[in-house]
Simulated scan of single mutants.
Amino acid sequence: MKLLVSLLLMSGLVNAQTTPDYAKETRWAEQVEDGLMDGDVVWLKANNHEFMSIYTPSETDTQKTAIIVHGLGVHPDWQQVIQPLRVALTTQGFNTLSIQMPVLDNEAHSGAYRSVFDQADQRIQAAVDYLQKNDLVADVLVAHSLGSVMSTHYLANYPHPFKRFVGVGMPSDNVDYLPKLSIPVLDLYGDQDIESVLTSVKSRAQAAKGNNDYTQIMVGADHFFNDKDDVLIDSVGAWLK
Rank of each mutant, 00 (worst) to 15 (best):
V168K: 01
R164Y: 11
Y130A: 14
V185M: 11
A143K: 02
H153C: 01
S182H: 13
G169A: 02
G169T: 05
Y158V: 04
G93S: 00
A88Q: 12
N134P: 09
A108W: 01
L186Y: 00
I124L: 15
E107G: 05
L89A: 09
Q132C: 13
V69A: 08
V166G: 08
P184Q: 06
D176S: 13
Y130K: 02
H75W: 12
S115G: 08
I124Q: 14
S110I: 14
V175Q: 10
P179C: 06
S145C: 03
V69Q: 04
V103T: 12
V69F: 10
G111Y: 10
V185T: 01
L186M: 07
K180C: 09
V175L: 09
Y113Q: 10
V103W: 08
H144R: 01
A126S: 15
Y113M: 08
Q92S: 04
L181D: 05
G111A: 12
L131P: 02
G167V: 02
Y177Q: 04
V128Q: 10
S182Q: 13
T152V: 08
G147N: 05
W78A: 03
S172T: 03
L186T: 01
V185L: 07
G71L: 08
T96S: 09
Y113G: 03
A112F: 03
P184S: 01
A156W: 06
R164P: 02
Q119S: 13
V103Y: 10
V74T: 15
T91V: 10
A126C: 14
S98I: 12
L131H: 04
T90H: 05
Q92N: 01
E107R: 10
D135L: 13
P171N: 03
I183F: 03
D139Q: 13
L186P: 00
Q83M: 14
L186H: 05
A108M: 08
D121G: 07
T96Y: 01
A108H: 01
G93C: 03
A138T: 11
L141F: 08
A120Y: 11
L89W: 09
H75D: 09
S182D: 15
D135S: 15
L146Q: 14
G167W: 04
Y177R: 00
Y130T: 13
N106R: 05
D105I: 06
V140N: 10
I82D: 04
G147H: 07
H75G: 00
R114Y: 15
V142E: 06
V69H: 04
L131D: 03
A126N: 08
I82E: 05
A138Y: 12
H160C: 11
M101P: 02
V168W: 02
P159I: 07
Q122A: 15
A127I: 14
V149G: 00
A88T: 13
P76D: 10
I183K: 04
E107I: 08
Q80W: 09
V175N: 12
V81L: 07
V168A: 09
D129E: 15
V149W: 06
L181Q: 05
H70W: 02
L186E: 08
G147E: 01
A127P: 04
N157G: 13
Q83N: 15
H70P: 00
Q80L: 01
G147F: 00
Q80I: 04
L97V: 14
L131M: 06
H153G: 09
L85R: 00
A156P: 02
Y130C: 14
S115Y: 03
H70Q: 00
D129M: 12
P161T: 01
D129Y: 11
L181K: 04
P161C: 14
A143L: 06
D173Q: 13
K180H: 14
D176F: 07
L131T: 12
T152D: 12
K180W: 13
